[in-house]
């Protein structure tokens, strides 16, 4: 069994310099509707604009005022089968988050119970976004229908974020977001739409315009437990 996984996110993929390493898969979930002009995001290991060291850098592509944004994932495979549907955590350091010169932005973060088998988006996601300083949102996505569970404005570059889902009570999913080791928010999901069959993942979407925006991450870990 592989119940935990650690990746510094600083090692260039030896197979393909546009990759994340053979322990990862990345892709984009198709949008729910048939909108024509969509924006997307993808990740690679690249030099951080923050400090000159390697990191996982999300890149956006698209146009001004897209009709819809697509959601991208980067999911670690070694833990997928053993962690899927269990109490689980994902942890990563956000070394830089900043808007582009034309206010384009990458909204990115962590997911638990993400289920990549579907043609729609399913998972709990903790998003960080750089608009108007810094903000965060905690969502549940059921078949690409997004329910906002909580939100706030905390966060600076360098924060260590952790998202966990506790399934020990079969009638609820308890989500905990911690920032630098302290609990930021706890949400108990008792709805019939709660999710308990996915695995940890990274997440990103690209909003607005076409300039370079910044979302850089390092020091990843995930696994069974909280």
């Amino acid at each position: 069994m592989t119940t935990s996984f650690i990746d510094s996110l600083t090692t260039i993929d030896i197979n393909n310099s546009n990759g994340l390493g053979s322990n990862w898969i990345q892709g984009t979930v198709a949008p729910n509707s048939a909108n024509n002009n969509v924006n997307g995001a993808a990740a690679k290991i690249a030099v951080a604009t923050k400090d000159g060291l390697n990191c996982l850098a999300w890149q956006g592509f698209g146009i001004s005022n897209p009709l819809e944004v697509t959601r991208a994932y980067a999911i670690p495979i070694p833990t997928y089968f053993d962690v899927r549907g269990q109490s689980q955590y994902v942890k990563c350091t956000n070394i830089k988050l900043a808007i582009g010169s034309d206010s384009s932005e990458l909204t990115s973060g962590l997911m638990v119970q993400f289920y990549g088998s579907t043609n729609t988006f399913n998972g709990y996601m903790f998003q960080l976004f750089p608009t108007s300083g810094r903000g965060w949102r905690l969502y549940r996505a059921n078949n690409t229908i997004f329910t906002l569970l909580n939100s706030g404005t905390e966060g600076v570059d360098g924060d260590i974020w952790k998202l966990s889902s506790d399934l020990s009570n079969s009638s609820q999913v308890t989500l905990i977001v911690s920032r630098n080791g302290s609990t930021l928010v706890t949400y108990i999901d008792t709805s019939s739409s709660r999710l308990n069959y996915g695995s940890p993942s990274l997440y990103c979407q690209f909003d607005n315009n076409g300039a370079i925006a910044y979302s850089e991450w390092r020091t990843f870990s995930c696994g069974i437990g909280l």
Partner: peptide, 28 residues
């Protein structure tokens, strides 16, 4: 787990093409 899925042994997604993206786009 989800009737929109292929089963838990599968993952699906799309890869954006390299270079400039001309709109509109189609996905699978």
């Amino acid at each position: 787990n989800n009737s929109n899925g292929l089963g838990y042994k599968w993952i699906q997604g799309n890869k954006p093409p390299g270079g400039a993206i001309n709109f509109p786009v189609d996905t699978m």
